[in-house]
Write a protein that binds this DNA or RNA. Structure first.
Length: 812
DNA sequence: GAGTTTGAAACT
DNA sequence: CAGTTTCAAACTC
């Protein structure tokens, strides 16, 4: 993934982290204005994420400014499950699409002006749609569907509709209700898709659209990408028809733009023309597959990728070869949001507004830029949420100044906010000062934790060491990731005192919470106030919660660090917390690495050493500086160094598999040397092991499994036997003790002297030897030993009773 | 418990 | 990226 440039990153909201990639790529203005929409169906290889959280639902709210009358939106979605799509433009045409199921949605308004030129080119590597001229997105649209596709065409092109309908077996009822279009029975679930238009009804391009429709009939071609039919507009233009250079896109599997072909599922691509300078520039869109920026480089023009939050009207042309891959999300569903700005040269230059709300899974990301353009309204609806609570916030931008709406109400204390990242091993406690408490409480949404509600803590960040440089962002938002079953969260804020948790420079530390080992403290941005983020192991948070008032005033990050350095109970290598808690981590024995390299399991698991046998250990808060440096080094070497190695595999494969695969050569992957075997998973295709025997049908593996099971059974039996014996002894003591103690004598166990104990052990050992010599089964041997132990106890008790009786007689 | 084996991590 | 070295855990005796 390309590194975010500082200047671009400064414009990025922090919500972009851990979400689907959102890329806006701008092409220098050396070419006629156009829009290149790259629909791509790259490989479905999911990008490793910090969590294995599958995103079931997607919410996408896309709002862009088209202050001019020209506007083009192209929307192509695929694999949308429980998705919500909200598209809004400054041209007073907010759209809200809410769809469920895996409908393939294509929203492509035709060009509103006769000068518009759209040309679709295809190549082996991709398909691009180049739009020249300005376009207007206006209602009414023609909605047609074909194979879970919806085509919105402002022009009621009966031809296209009929063609689409004829090709579609699914029935749709397109109903226009005032400013709403209700498309029912879309897709498989029948979840209605609502295209909601602004109440003003002012659709600048309606009349014009009709004319355009006549003069320029929409041309849609059915393109099947990834086995799904996609309608791709082929819009002719009276203007200069500049052929679009064939985009050089990797992993594009669109082989035929006009014919149905089978390919991998296409990605979710939104192409939207927005207002910007240099509208004559042809804009090339780089598809992003699973967070991977696939740059299509025009033969002449360098690729340029801009962020959604970038003020396009000011800096598009000044940037070149800058890409930002926003928020790869670990999900099979790919999302690519491409926004292409175009503007009529003669139109009034208006400040670009590109508010974008992207809700992915349980997240809604909001990107907003101040604008002076006409108000835009984003209406987001989430009608298909299954496990999602009602959408808590809908960020609205596009109006002059900040016009965010629906900020998640925060129930937590303003000073301290806990962020729990699903799948992450760490909790993140946002450290704020009291002066910022009132505002930060509003803007951050730590209440996402469904497991550990935040509790008030007194945090003094003034002395917290800020070790990770973070450049202040223009907008400040927080990413709050929630478990799947939790409520969709939107954390949107424009509060200036919150900062972007994302390096503005290509820091080795990725903008990824899970990459941050515990103890990491984000430094406040220069002038950004004393707001820091401390990455704390989950255990620490738990401890903090147990002690509601914890003062973090130590320069070393946490006071009394030694006192809280108990072993963190964090999910390790894909194991659940319960698994890890039930199996305490082994203490390390590092001698040379100072426990600051991944050789050390403690360090690798993001834990402090505690009760370890290591020498010269630096993996503690006393050596925070060295530790953070080591963390940085590790992340520099491997950004995913601190991520669990065991993650979910592809569909159809085992749920758990090694992220990198093993490289075993001599162990046959049947010893704990093998990380796969150690994790109790089988080797996968990505393993590079030699002589692997750790596969499903392996007889060796089965044998080992049987042996392991047998051993486990034996352990359980022994445990049960010991428990039973203990119970029996306890009962026996309870029965005999009153009798003995009633006379004022000693209890039976007081007769267990050293000599008695040694004699008992000798008896037990002798019994074991006899059992071994007689080749008794282990279970039988254990039984005999236990019986002997019982006999010994009985003799002890009997002797004790006899001794007491004798004593009593003597006393008499 | 010492020594050996092993493979990941680190290094070149 | 490949080969080598380092390292600590796993394993054996």
């Amino acid at each position: 993934m390309d590194v975010v440039s500082p200047e671009l990153n400064s414009l990025l909201p922090d919500e972009i982290m851990d979400t689907e990639a959102i890329v806006m790529e701008d092409v220098p203005a050396s070419q006629p204005d156009g829009t290149a929409v790259q629909s791509e169906s790259g490989d479905d290889v999911p990008i490793p994420m910090e969590t294995d959280t599958p995103v079931v639902s997607e919410n996408l709210s896309f709002c862009s400014d088209a202050s001019s009358t020209e506007h083009t939106q192209a929307l192509t979605t695929s694999t949308i499950t429980d998705s919500m799509l909200s598209i809004s433009s400054e041209s007073q045409l907010p759209l809200t699409l809410s769809s469920a199921s895996s409908s393939l949605l294509t929203l492509k308004p035709t060009l509103a002006t006769s000068t518009a030129t759209t040309k679709t080119t295809d190549s082996v590597t991709g398909t691009s749609v180049t739009t020249s001229g300005l376009q207007r997105l206006s209602a009414p649209f023609t909605i047609s569907a074909a194979n879970h596709q919806i085509i919105l065409n402002k022009v009621a092109s009966s031809q296209a509709i009929e063609a689409a309908k004829s090709a579609s077996s699914s029935t749709q009822a397109v109903k226009q209700e005032g400013q709403k279009f209700l498309v029912r029975t879309i897709g498989k679930s029948g979840q209605p898709i609502v295209f909601q238009l602004p109440s003003t009804g002012s659709k600048p391009g309606v009349g014009q659209a009709s004319g355009d429709a006549k003069s320029q009939a929409p041309q849609f071609k059915v393109v099947t990408i990834g086995g799904r039919t996609e309608l791709k507009p082929v819009i002719g233009s009276t203007a200069s028809q500049v052929p679009t250079p064939t985009p050089q896109v990797k992993t594009v599997q669109i082989t035929n733009k006009t014919q149905v072909s089978s390919a991998t599922p296409i990605k979710f691509i939104i192409a939207n023309t927005v207002n910007s300078k240099g509208l004559t520039a042809q804009r090339s869109v780089s598809p992003v597959i699973a967070g991977r920026v696939l740059t299509q480089n025009p033969p002449v023009l360098p690729p340029r990728t801009i962020t959604l939050s970038e003020p396009l009207n000011t800096s598009i042309q000044s940037m070149s070869s800058k890409k930002i891959a926003i928020s790869p999300l670990k999900t099979p569903t790919k999302l690519t949001v491409v926004s292409v700005a175009s503007q009529i040269p003669t139109s009034t230059q208006k400040p670009m507004t590109l508010p974008v709300n992207v809700a992915l899974g349980q997240q809604i990301l909001t990107v907003q830029q101040p604008t002076t353009a006409s108000p835009a309204k984003v209406v987001s609806s989430q009608s298909t949420a299954q496990n999602i609570k009602p959408l808590q916030s809908v960020a609205v931008g596009g109006v002059s100044g900040s016009q965010f709406k629906t900020i998640i109400p925060l129930a937590t204390q303003p000073n301290v906010q806990q962020i729990q990242v699903p799948g992450s091993r760490f909790h993140y406690v946002r450290l704020v000062t009291a002066t910022t408490g009132s505002s930060t409480g509003q803007t951050s949404g730590p209440s996402t934790s469904s497991i550990q509600p935040a509790k008030p803590m007194v945090v003094n960040t003034g002395a917290v060491r800020m070790s990770v440089p973070i450049v202040q962002a223009q907008t400040m938002k927080q990413v709050v990731r929630k478990p799947l079953t939790s409520t969709a969260q939107v954390v949107t804020t424009s509060h200036p005192q919150q900062r972007l948790i994302m390096p503005a420079t290509p820091l080795p530390i990725q903008p990824n919470f899970t990459n941050l080992p515990p103890g990491t403290v984000f430094a406040p941005a220069p002038g950004g106030g004393n707001v820091g983020y401390a990455v704390v192991p989950a255990q620490y948070v738990t401890q903090f919660q147990q002690s509601p008032y914890v003062t973090l005033a130590s320069s070393s990050g946490f006071p009394a660090c030694s006192g809280i350095q108990s072993q963190a109970r964090l999910p390790l290598n894909g194991l659940s917390t319960a698994e890890t808690t039930s199996r305490p981590r082994k203490p390390c024995n590092c001698t040379k690495s100072q426990c600051l390299k991944l050789y050390c399991d403690c360090f690798a698991n993001g834990e402090f050493c505690n009760n370890c046998n290591c020498n010269n250990c630096f993996n503690n808060l006393e050596h925070e500086t060295e530790r953070l440096k080591a963390i940085k080094t590790c992340l520099d070497r491997n950004p995913e160094a601190f991520k669990p190695k065991i993650g979910k595999g592809k569909d159809g494969e085992s749920d758990r598999r090694h992220s990198k695969g093993c490289n075993c050569k001599r162990s046959g992957c049947l010893k704990n040397y093998c990380e796969c075997y150690e994790a109790k998973i089988m080797c996968s295709s990505i393993c590079k092991c030699i002589g692997c025997k750790n596969f499903e049908e392996s007889p060796e593996r089965k044998t080992l499994m049987h042996l392991a099971d047998a051993a486990e059974v034996r352990v359980q039996q022994q445990t049960a036997a010991k428990t039973k014996l203990s119970s029996q002894i306890s009962d026996l003591l309870m029965r005999t003790a009153p009798v003995i103690s009633s006379g004022g004598g000693r209890l039976p166990y007081t007769f267990v002297t050293k000599e008695v104990l040694e004699a008992t052990c000798e008896c037990l050992i002798e019994q074991a030897k006899q059992a071994e010599l007689s080749h008794q089964p282990q279970a039988q041997a254990e039984r005999l030993i236990l019986e002997e132990f019982g006999h010994c106890l009985m003799r002890i008790i009997s002797s004790a009773g006899k001794a007491k009786t004798d004593c009593a007689s003597i006393n008499c």
